[in-house]
Design a protein around this nucleic acid. Structure first.
Lengths: 205, 205, 205, 205
DNA sequence: GGATAATCGAGACGGTACGTCGCGTCTTCAT
DNA sequence: ATGAAGACGCGACGTACCGTCTCGATTATCC
């Protein structure tokens, strides 16, 4: 234990008073939640199950998250890396958008996709974490898309008189539509075609 | 008794042996479920609550629906009339589509909308009722849309080389995207603009 | 059918009006109850189980017996023949008593014995059938015993100043005591020894 | 903290890890069970009823007792004090036995008596608690009786060649016989007469 | 022979209670 | 002052049977 003491002195961090552990437990909890999510789906992630698998007391979980939804969301957010922020800056804005959409399709085509959709729909009240979750998985990328559309407008690749919010929902909406309804598969090709159709329009032109 | 036999054969209906199910109970159950759904949201619709309010035994509910999701779905399907089949045959196919989209927006803008989205996402397995539900609320109208798009193609109002499935998801997807994410309101104007943007495309043209 | 009519007129009984009760159904019910009793014990004899196994509707059972206890008791009473009325009239009354006790031991040593005890104890209210049941299995034989004791008194085989009721409970009681407590086996030898000890007393004499 | 450790080692008690069980809840459960038993009889003691009256969750009951029979037995065992161990050491063993029998008669003459008999008969399988129950109410006293009979033999008050087990069942059996059959009342006088008849025998002597 | 009527099978009904699962909180001991 | 362990009150789950009722079909008697 001498080493421990020395390390602490060396690090110089100030410990509150008597609490030695915490990050280890947090990691174990999220890890257990991720496993259960993969094995049993969103409804199979119970606090009791997570606590048992993580070797942790239930109150420890509640010390970090307010309820089981928050735990599942946190686990999903940890497990699924977002499409690395600047997302492969391509030559043109539309090209970058195309890359981003392909990446999203790849993520949402997995079982994780349905879990995310379920959590999005299940979030009954507007909480901190549900907002963060929506932002993490969807709205942040939609904002990336907004920036790219603006660039494309500036580059005169797309028209200036469009309603950007409508355009964004038209591009990202189909992904979640298929996720929710399951009437057709989600793949990279699909997202590309969505973008193409959105750009060219359905009319003769 | 020959007449009786003949009538049954003719009608083709097959009377089962025992006491027939009580339509009164069925109506009371769905009615109670609808009320609870409106008052407490999807998660507030418990079998116990429905049974108590409907003045019905729990086993009677389980005799007809496999679980609470099925009851909620059935209640929603009973309460919400779909946009009357042929949906106001307008002069042109696109006009008819526009009318249908406005109607859907009106339905999904209500609290019922979120409930439908929640049920769509919560349905963990592919059951008879979940399929019926998706079909009732969404896919049937998407198929209406498909017919209208085909008409529009025949009438040379839109291009013949489009991928109709992609086009449909691009038109109906944004509605569910907003429903799920809640980042912007759903109203008739929104759906109209979606259709407009889909038709004209984002490019210069 | 002439014979039938004549017999009825002779007997003078009045046929109610409608379809007569099916003796076949009654027999099937008791048979099914007996089987379930043997397989699952008294608590395993449910009305639903009996109805299903007998190929009979539940109301048919309730037309004959008021509740499931009555059915079990009836099944037991049908299955277990009482120790043939006069029970082997031996040379002396005490010898006859000894024979009767041996026979009772044989009956109660089987699984049926515990079932009878359970039904005796479970009968919460004083009904027609529970009285009949107690009488059939126990009290009738106790009355036989009373007659035999009286004979033995007359024959000066036992004392005249005893309390016959006390004596009878002292002879038949031990059987049910072991049945209920299960602390020792029930067999013919045991009942014989009970009778011997009752006759000779525990004192020196 | 050395003292603490030492004390525990000395006492030998082993504190389990978690929150200790609530004695308050245990007492409330048994108390509620006792009340319901008195008001409604053995079949009126339902787990739901006990939980509601005790202000306790059902799972708390199931944590400590395997089923409703065990709860009733525990309640009976708590409520009814056994006839204080050494049971009034009288001058002679037979006198002590007589006192014990009178006390038992007093206990079993009450409504509690029938409840005990019902539980004895209902216990379908041989469990820890059913064994404890039988021992508590009956077999322990039968063993007391055995000791007293042995004393009486040593004191030459009764014969040495008797089968003590048979004699015991002959003395205690009649009590349960009347309890089960209800053909005659149970009172102190009855038990005394049983003992008298057992001692003197039915023969002339 | 046709009407009448009771019983039959089947099985749904409103109920009660079961025993279980998971929730989120609380309490204890050990660190 | 945390952390694991785990009991607590609670609410809902889905199931088993209860005893009753409502059907169409069947089987008898009565007119």
């Amino acid at each position: 234990m001498k080493a421990n003491v020395k390390a602490r002195e060396a690090g110089g961090e100030k410990r509150p008073r008597g609490r030695p552990r915490s990050e280890r437990a947090k990691a174990a909890i999220l890890s257990a939640a991720r496993e259960l999510l993969a094995e049993l789906g969103p409804s199979g992630v119970t606090i009791e199950g997570v606590a048992a698998r993580a070797g942790v007391g239930k109150p420890t979980i509640y010390r970090w998250w307010p309820d089981r939804y928050a735990v599942v969301m946190a686990a999903l957010m940890e497990s699924e890396s977002p499409p690395q922020a600047p997302a492969h800056r391509a030559r043109s804005a539309l090209k970058s958008l195309r890359v981003q959409l392909r990446r999203m399709a790849a993520v949402f085509a997995t079982g994780t996709g349905r879990a995310i959709a379920a959590m999005l729909a299940a979030a009954e009240q507007e909480t901190e974490i549900s907002r963060a979750f929506r932002n993490h998985f969807v709205l942040a990328r939609r904002e990336e898309g907004r920036a790219l559309l603006r660039e494309a407008i500036a580059a005169r690749e797309i028209r200036a008189d469009i309603d950007v919010d409508v355009a964004l929902d038209m591009i990202y909406g189909p992904l979640f539509f298929r996720l929710l309804l399951g009437h057709a598969p989600i793949d990279e090709r699909f997202m590309e075609r969505v973008l193409d159709h959105a750009l060219h329009g359905l009319r003769y032109g």
